[in-house]
C-alpha cells in the first residue's frame, strides 16, 4: 500500500510542480542567463554572447547605487512602520473581542488586500492632491495645507498603507496562539504589564512579525507602479529602471541584471526571517 500510495501522490504532483518548474523556475533560469547577455547597439537585438558589462555598469554608475539604496531603504522603513501600526489592531483582534466581532474585523482587515491595488493607490492621489481630501480638512481646521504628494514621504505613506494587512494577519495569528495562562502566570509572579509585553508577548510574536515582514518587504521591493503614481522625480525604484528597460528601445539584459539584485536581497531576507521562525506557522 505504502509505495503505491506515494506513487499516486507523485502522479498528482506532476502537473502543478511541472508547471511551476517550467514556467517559474525556467523563467528565473533564463533571467539569470540573460543578465549576462547584451543588446546589439546597431540592431537592438539580444545577442547571446557572455559578458559582465551589465554588472560593470551597475556597479560603476552611482545612479544605480542610489536607486538600489532607495528601494531597499524604503522597503525597510515600510516594514518597520507596518509593524508599529499592526500591533494595536492585531492585539485587539486577537485578544480583546468575541468571535463574531473578530470575524467582522478580520474581514475588514483583509478587505483592502483583496480590493484593487490600483484603486488603493489612486485613493491616495485623491487624498493627498493639492485640492484633495486632506487639504480640505486641514483648511477647515484652520491648519496650513500639505504638499507631500509626489514625494518620497507620500511613497512611504502609501506603501505602508498598501501592505499593512500583510503584517496584521500573521501578527494576529501569532498573538492568538499565546496561552492566556502564560500571561496570568507572568502577572502572578509580579511582572508589570510592560514587563509582560517585553519578556513574554514580544518574543512570542516575533515569528508573526517575521512572516508578515517577508511580504511587506518583498512586495515593496518589487513594485514600480506605486513609485510611478505617487512618487516624484527622485522616487525611482529598481522596478522603474527594469520597467523602462523593457520594450522597444530597452535593454532587457541590463534590466535582468538589475532585477537579480532583488532576487538576492529577498532570498537573503527570507533566510534571516526563517531564523526568526517566519515559516514555522505554516
Amino acid at each position: 500500500m505504502g509505495l503505491r500510495r506515494y506513487a499516486g501522490n507523485l502522479a498528482l504532483l506532476v502537473p502543478p510542480f511541472g508547471w511551476l518548474t517550467v514556467f517559474y523556475l525556467g523563467s528565473l533560469f533564463i533571467l539569470l542567463l540573460s543578465a549576462f547577455w547584451q543588446v546589439d547597439s546597431m540592431t537592438g537585438e539580444i545577442v547571446h554572447d557572455w559578458t559582465l558589462d551589465n554588472f560593470r555598469v551597475l556597479f560603476s554608475d552611482v545612479t544605480y547605487r542610489i536607486v538600489a539604496q532607495r528601494t531597499i531603504g524604503i522597503a525597510v522603513l515600510v516594514t518597520l512602520t507596518d509593524i508599529v501600526l499592526a500591533w494595536p489592531l492585531a492585539w485587539v483582534i486577537a485578544r480583546k473581542v468575541g468571535p463574531r466581532l473578530k470575524l467582522l474585523l478580520l474581514v475588514l482587515v483583509a478587505l483592502p488586500l483583496w480590493s484593487s491595488m490600483l484603486a488603493r493607490i489612486y485613493a491616495w492621489r485623491l487624498i493627498l492632491g493639492h485640492d484633495g481630501v486632506l487639504n480640505w480638512f486641514l483648511h477647515e481646521a484652520g491648519l496650513p495645507g500639505q504638499s507631500i504628494a509626489f514625494t518620497n514621504v507620500a511613497l512611504w505613506l502609501v506603501f505602508s498603507y498598501l501592505w499593512l494587512p500583510f503584517m496584521v494577519m500573521p501578527l494576529i495569528a501569532a498573538l492568538e496562539r499565546i496561552p492566556a495562562s502564560l500571561l496570568d502566570a507572568a502577572g502572578d509572579m509580579g511582572a508589570t504589564p510592560s514587563q509582560v509585553l517585553r519578556t513574554v508577548i514580544l518574543p512570542l510574536a516575533v515569528p508573526g512579525m517575521a512572516a508578515g515582514s517577508i511580504f511587506t518587504f518583498a512586495v515593496t521591493l518589487g513594485d514600480y507602479v506605486t513609485p510611478m503614481l505617487v512618487g516624484g522625480a527622485g522616487s525611482d525604484f529598481v522596478g522603474n529602471v527594469v520597467y523602462s528597460n523593457v520594450g522597444v528601445s530597452g535593454n532587457v539584459p541590463f534590466a535582468a541584471a538589475f532585477s537579480l539584485l532583488l532576487l538576492v536581497v529577498v532570498a537573503g531576507y527570507m533566510l534571516v526571517a526563517r531564523r526568526f521562525g517566519a515559516f514555522d506557522g505554516t
Binding site: S27, L31, L221, G239, V242, V246, V252, A255, A256, V266
Partner: peptide, 13 residues
C-alpha cells in the same frame, strides 16, 4: 517574490 522580478523573468523566458 517581488512582482518586477517575476515579470521580467517571464518576459525573458
Amino acid at each position: 517574490m517581488p512582482g518586477v522580478l517575476t515579470g521580467i523573468a517571464m518576459n525573458s523566458f
